[in-house]
């Protein structure tokens, strides 16, 4: 398991390659990457605040629970904070399992819990000013399926 909370960018290709390479037990590797989107147009930047200390603890607990629920050989979470431009990658998760069902489900579980149980807060900066991104009821509801 590797957990990384960082301000700087990560290299998706290098991270995915390093995670997948040399595995003999796992037949399935799933990766997911979240990108700063600008649906309405006019987004200048996305600021991500976090709670140093608790963030790492929460992510480790979420990953540990995923490894307990599914037959994972390994998992990876990288999450950025600070100021990001539209199109930049915010975060990625990767899971390695014997079979793809476990790898996909565990990756979805990691994403669902990252959304509303890891102490990150997003703020969108546009020409009109700055606004905190509100949490979505769907994200909270998504946890009930696990």
């Amino acid at each position: 398991m590797r957990i990384a909370v960082q301000e700087g960018p990560f290299d998706l290709g290098a991270e995915a390659d390093a995670f997948a390479r040399g595995r003999c037990v796992s037949g399935a590797i799933v990766t997911f990457t979240g990108v700063v989107r600008d649906v309405a147009g006019g987004l200048k930047a996305m600021e991500i605040e976090h709670y140093p200390g608790m963030t790492e603890t929460a992510l480790t607990e979420i990953a540990t629970e995923a490894e307990r629920r599914w037959a994972l050989e390994d998992c990876l979470i990288i999450h950025r904070h600070g100021t990001l431009a539209p199109g930049e990658m915010i975060m990625m998760v990767a899971t390695a399992a014997l079979h793809r069902k476990d790898a996909f489900e565990a990756a979805e579980y990691l994403m669902d819990y990252l959304k509303s149980r890891a102490p990150f807060w997003k703020r969108e900066i546009t020409g009109d000013g700055a606004e905190w991104v509100a949490s979505r009821d769907e994200d909270e509801a998504a946890l009930t399926r696990w």
Binding site: Y51, M54, H79, K115, P119, F120, W121, K122, W132, S135
Partner: peptide, 10 residues
Amino acid sequence: VAFFPPMTGG
């Protein structure tokens, strides 16, 4: 003790 709004990670 920390107070904050609902989290918006991912």
